[in-house]
Design a protein around this nucleic acid. Structure first.
Length: 260
DNA sequence: GAATTCGCCTGCACGC
DNA sequence: TGCGTGCAGGCGAATT
């Protein structure tokens, strides 16, 4: 799923394929994925221009144009970028044709993804009330965003208003590494546990990027390669599967004990 | 405002 | 083979 590490990979892909080429043609295949902009506005903004750089924040990718506007991309569950021939993308929602004859497709089977325009990412981040980026945040701010929070730790990690970038899979991994039970009320965690959580979050995200966001390819000691029905905890024992905040959650009851 | 639940969307795995 | 069912999950709206 496109979480923060995925977005880092997408950003790299975008930067390597789609910068500095004039856009010759724009087709909004599925206008329903547009937010705050019409098909016409998207076309008008992109046509005849080129992308000059990109920025990732949380699970968003902002593509800056040479007219100082930004195309906002959010990939939902199944979204990704494809650069190549027009028929290489199975579920295109936005098709951009460059002067080179190559296409960039925003492909998203389930249409949970979103596209829009903004004058500046910072403006958008503020509007959306996104929390600090999980890869950029320091420990002081990390403690601050969870201060006075009484909710369960996992839904809080997933809450993009609290912290931007973490999704269901990596939330499970981070909690597993930190030996924190997903249902633990945030205010019951002590100083050592917050430090542990912070350090593991950074380590897991960096490791995921290093492994090209292939969760199943992570080292054996990680939860994600075992995160499937019948999967075993790499430290021994069976993994439990429970819903937390409506999300499927895997954890190891031996390692991750609930605090009351 | 904060916590919690639910529905959107659709490909795919699974069972009969 | 083919059909029906339910799951996957990011996010925002609705509810408490």
């Amino acid at each position: 799923m496109p979480e923060l590490p995925t977005l880092e990979i997408y950003k790299k892909y975008f930067d390597e394929t789609s910068l500095h080429q004039t856009i010759n043609h724009v087709q909004v295949v599925s206008p329903e994925v547009l937010v705050g902009s019409s098909s016409e506005e998207i076309k008008k903004t992109l046509l005849g221009h080129e992308f000059i750089q990109s920025r990732r924040y949380g699970k968003y990718l902002f593509a800056q144009m040479d007219n100082d506007l930004f195309l906002i991309m959010h990939f939902g569950m199944t979204g990704f970028l494809y650069y190549g021939s027009v028929d290489g993308s199975r579920y295109p929602r936005l098709l951009i044709e460059f002067s080179t004859g190559k296409f960039l497709s925003f492909d998203d089977a389930r249409k949970f993804g979103k596209l829009g325009l903004t004058r500046h990412p910072d403006e958008f981040i503020k509007e959306k009330k996104l929390g600090p980026d999980a890869l950029e945040i320091n420990f002081k701010s990390f403690k601050e965003v969870f201060k006075n929070r009484k909710g369960m730790i996992k839904p809080l990690l997933l809450n993009q208003h609290v912290l931007a970038g973490i999704g269901n899979l990596y939330a499970d991994e981070i909690l597993y590494q930190s030996r924190v039970h997903p249902l633990t009320p945030a205010h019951l965690l002590d100083k050592e546990e917050w430090e542990q959580l912070f350090n593991d979050m950074k380590r897991v995200l960096q490791k995921a990027i290093e492994y090209q966001d292939k969760p199943e390819a992570l080292p054996e000691s990680y939860l994600l390669p075992h995160r499937h029905p019948g999967g075993k905890c790499p430290a021994g024992g069976k993994l439990n599967i429970i819903p937390v905040g409506g999300r499927t959650t895997y954890f190891c009851p031996q390692r991750q004990k609930i605090k009351h």
